[in-house]
Structure formats: structure tokens, C-alpha cells
Design a protein around this nucleic acid. Structure first.
Lengths: 299, 299
DNA sequence: AGCGGCCCTTTAGCATCGCTTCATGGACGT
DNA sequence: ACGTCCATGAAGCGATGCTAAAGGGCCGCT
């Protein structure tokens, strides 16, 4: 039972002649005639009959034509099904972020989305090696990722990148640290300090590398700590310095965060997603709210 | 949006892998892959994605697959639509009969069909030239027709013929007629009477012709009257004789109806219909009841 | 880590199908 | 009786959907 043939039957029913139906379908009368003949083969009783020189439907044909209406309607709905899914506010939106971004933005984002009557959120934190961030888009609609601004960009082929924030990376040292005495900080001032770096391959490894390049020699990395709040606690002991993000680091009276005068070290915080993810209205809405939430304080 | 492609998508959703879907559809995996690719072209977002080495549906694909269920259901209903129409007790059955049959059987048939909970009836009387009876099946499900038993049969090619009754044709003459004095009636007795015939081409013309043939000479047909009750009234005047059917003629004390001893003149009363008309349960039911109603009195 | 198997995709080639054009045969109106 | 309109059938062509075979990714096994 072919949909095209059913459509032809309906057209014949409504137009009253095979020629008119063919014209409406942009086909030759012969084509319609042949297809109706094929449809007839599957039916035990005649569906059409000649009335004068026109072709008309029998009662059985009319019964079939009426059933064909439902088929066409169901097909219409199927064609819209994907689009409706894209517009649907009921489907959850999965967001993931690296730890510090998650800590800073998940709470206000959940509030904002709820306040806006947005979709249900599925939040999860994932801190992975830089190369692994793009793969997270397979399981999450929006992936908040970061990388050193000086490093290699995200692979534009496979993921869409929406910039969220460009955040300065500051040198963090203890308030009691000798560096605290100098008014400004330069690369040369910190090049010989014991550093806290991140694990190999993790996003901000390149940031510290930029300092080393500017200093002209390798830095002494004595600790490898990915979590900024852990690193901050170690920095507070005064036994090492670290590069910490300006905005997303929790204020701590025991720490001093200062920029390097002669080197602009930054990290880029971006939202990665599959291109098709942005087709979903809900995902766009969450992304917009994420932008609002992540906007650096006006002050 | 092709139904076959939607079916493949559903099968993929339910079987969990393209190969399994292909096997279920009795197709090669390649065919399914190509058709799904074609379906994908019509969608703005991916419908499938590789999960491990299997192919799985995305959320959008699942939305479409669900819509495809309705399409399949509607198609199923369409395929049954014709059959259901054939079984439907609601569709009216159109019956037509020549006048005397209509007068005799329409009332009891209506009663019988109503008593049996049968379909609504559309009765109409049509007395037409013999050649025109077969054409009536275009507008009526059942056509009660008659013809001289000795004449040409109905065209079996175009219509189905269901015998209803074989009815003797009797010579009708006035009770006061000289013929009333003879104990039996033979062809020779009536060959010289003034006859009432039917109009040219009408079904029972051939019956009178049979008498003429037996007599070996043309009969003198002084009146041409199709309606038996009109003919009966004229016969009652004693001025002419006629051939009238044995059972469907209304009893009249002024008339005598007697068979010819040496010639069996009969008419066949048949039901004509299109072959497909008998596919309808309702039509068969009415036909059965018509048989019961038309059964000659047991006496 | 290497390897074999499973699964999906791609390509090429083939059979079928559906369409158009052209020709034929009825039915209607003039 | 003719011309017109309508539906159908035959022939041919292009498109489509299939199979088979080759290719590549992913997994599990050793």
C-alpha cells in the first residue's frame, strides 16, 4: 500500500477526474492511471469506475481515500516531529563544566534557568585533559571548557565553539611571600620560584609554559595540582606560587593575586557543543543564560 | 519523508543495530544504511550516531521513530479500510426490481431485513428493456430482473446472475371468456385470440414469441402493455388474453389463469449484480433474505 | 600491544520502477 | 457525424533501491 498511490486516489476523489488529479500532482494522466491500476491490484473490489468519460471512486474507493487522509496526516506529523523535538522545552539539557567553572556557575545557572521557565538541566562536572574536552560533546549538549589563550585552538571541524570568557591568569603567592614586597610583578621576578603546575596534558599546562618561554628557561614545577582550590591552599603556605584565574578563584586573605606586568597570560573559557545542539531552542536558551551568569562582574 | 525509510528507522531503534534491522527487514545492511542516509538528508540534525561499533538513534531520531509508529498504524488502517467497508453493516444496500417484483417483494424484504438487523435498504423500481437490465448494476447493488426462460441468457461476462425463481407464465383470460368453457388450454386454443403483449424489447416479449413459434404463425397483438396489473384489468374486460406470471399476479375473481398444456412458458427471475457486490457482507445478507422472501408458497 | 572479528559505510553495477510521450478507444457536445 | 475530452495501453528512458565487494573503525581476546 503505497503512500503516493493513496495520495493519487485522494486527489482523484477531490478533483473528480483523473486528468485534474494528474495536473494537481504535476504528473501526466498516464502516470496516475498506472499507479491507480497498481493500487487496484491490491484491492479485492474495484476502487474506481468510469462515470461518463470521467473516472470516479466507488464506495470502496471512497472508504480507502478517507483512510488515506489519516495516513497523510500521520506523515505530516512525522515530518514535523524532528522540528518539534528541537523546539520542545521538556527535553533536558545536559551541561558539563570543569570543576571551577561548575562550582562558580552551576548554582546561578540552575537558578536562572528555573526562573526563566527553561528546560530541566542535567549538570555534571568533568575535568579532563585538554584533548578530551571535544569528546565530551557526545554526551553533553553544552561543554564548558578552558584552554590557555596562547595555546592551540579547539578543533573547529568537530565542535562548535562559543566564547564565554577571556580570563586573566594571575600569579598567586602567599601574602607573607617576599614577592609581596615588590609593587609590581614581572616574569623575571617569578621565574625562579617553585611553581605549582597542572598535570601533564591538562588545559592550563600551556599557560605556565608561556611564562617559561617568556623567561627563557624552564620553570621549576614542584607540584602538579589540577584543582585551583587545592593549589590555593598550597600557595597559602608560602612554599610555592601558581597561576590562578582572576575571577573564578575564591577570595582568600592569605593569598595575593597579581598580574604579570610584562606578560598577558590568559585562559579562554568556551562552550563547546555539536553544531546541531544549537538547533534546539532549549539549548540556546541555556547557553544565553550561561553567558549572563558568567559575565564578569561589572566592577 | 518515505515510509520505508521510517520503517527502517523504527527497526533500528528496536533492534539496536543496523545489521539486526536489516536482517529483520530481509535486506542487506548496505541498503538500510543508504536509506537511513537518505532520510538523514531531510533532517536538520543527526538522527543516528555511532555508539561503539553499533549505530544508535539520537534524541531527534527517537522522536522521529515515535512519529513513524503513527504512520505505520495509519497505513495499517488504510490497508484494512476496504475490507472493513465490505463488512460494514452501515453502508446502505441499493436494490432495484421491475415493477411486479418490487410490488410483491419490497415490503416483505424491508420487513425481513429490518427484523434481521440488516443494513439500510435503498429500494427502487425499474422496468427497462431487457438489454438494459445489466446496466442497472452500475447504480444498484442488487437488480431483480426477469427474462423469458426460452430467451437469450444474461451476459455472464459483465454481471453475476443469481437465479431467484422460475415462474410459469399462464394464459390469463376473463372468467366469462369462451375459453373458460374448455377444461384445458392448448396453444391452438389461444393462437387466434387477440393478445396483449409487452412493448418491443421488454423482457417478456420473448415469452409471447414462444407461443407464436409453437403455433406456427404470428399472434395478433392488439395491445402493448408492460404493467401486468394494467394488462390484467384489460383482460378482465374479456376483449383480449395475455400471458401473466403465475405467482406475482394479484388474484382477481374476474380472471382465470391457466397453463398451456402443450407448452411450458416460463420466465426466469434472477438477481443481477456486479461480481464485487457479493463481496459485501450486507449485500449477501440482503440477497439471502430476498431468496427467502421470494420462495414460492409451499402450497 | 597485536590481532581477528564485528559492524557500518562506500562504491560499483544491476534490476526494477515510475514517469513521459505517443497512440488508441470511448463518451459527450455541437 | 464530427471534433473534443478523457482514460488507458505500449515503448523507452531516467531514477531509484538493491546486492555484492571492499574499506575502515571499534572492540575483545590473547
Amino acid at each position: 500500500m503505497d503512500v503516493r498511490q493513496l495520495r493519487m486516489l485522494r486527489e482523484l476523489a477531490e478533483r473528480g477526474s483523473l486528468s485534474a488529479a494528474a495536473a494537481a500532482l504535476h504528473l501526466s494522466p498516464s502516470a496516475v492511471s498506472q499507479q491507480l491500476a497498481a493500487l487496484q491490484r491490491a484491492a479485492p473490489v474495484p476502487l474506481t469506475e468510469k462515470r461518463g468519460r470521467r473516472l470516479a471512486l466507488t464506495a470502496a474507493g471512497q472508504a480507502l481515500a478517507e483512510a488515506a487522509v489519516d495516513v497523510a496526516a500521520a506523515l505530516d506529523r512525522a515530518e514535523r516531529a524532528v522540528q518539534e523535538h528541537l523546539e520542545s522545552p521538556a527535553a533536558p539539557v545536559a551541561v558539563c563544566a570543569f570543576h571551577s567553572a561548575a562550582r562558580a556557575w552551576f548554582p546561578p545557572l540552575l537558578e536562572a534557568v528555573a526562573a526563566a521557565g527553561g528546560p530541566p538541566l542535567r549538570c555534571s562536572d568533568h575535568d579532563v585533559a585538554q584533548d578530551d574536552f571535544p569528546r565530551l560533546v557526545a554526551d553533553h549538549d553544552l561543554v564548558v571548557a578552558h584552554r590557555p589563550s596562547s595555546g592551540p585552538p579547539w578543533p573547529r571541524r568537530t565542535v562548535r565553539v562559543v566564547p564565554l570568557l577571556s580570563e586573566p591568569m594571575l600569579v598567586a603567592h602567599s601574602a607573607q611571600h617576599p614577592l609581596a614586597r615588590s609593587r609590581t610583578l614581572r616574569v623575571a621576578d617569578v621565574a625562579d620560584q617553585p611553581w605549582i603546575g597542572v598535570h601533564e596534558g591538562y588545559p592550563l599546562a600551556g599557560a605556565l609554559q608561556a611564562v617559561a618561554v617568556a623567561a627563557g628557561r624552564p620553570l621549576e614545577v614542584v607540584h602538579r595540582i589540577n584543582e585551583f582550590f587545592v593549589a590555593a591552599a598550597v600557595v597559602a603556605t608560602g612554599r610555592a606560587v601558581a597561576l590562578l584565574p582572576a575571577h573564578t578563584t575564591h577570595p582568600d586573605p592569605r593569598l595575593v593575586l597579581r598580574p604579570l606586568e610584562d606578560l598577558d597570560v590568559r585562559r579562554s573559557i568556551d562552550v563547546l557543543c555539536r553544531p546541531e545542539a544549537l538547533h534546539r531552542r532549549s539549548v540556546r536558551q541555556v547557553l544565553d543564560l550561561l553567558h549572563a551568569v558568567a559575565a564578569p562582574p561589572a566592577a
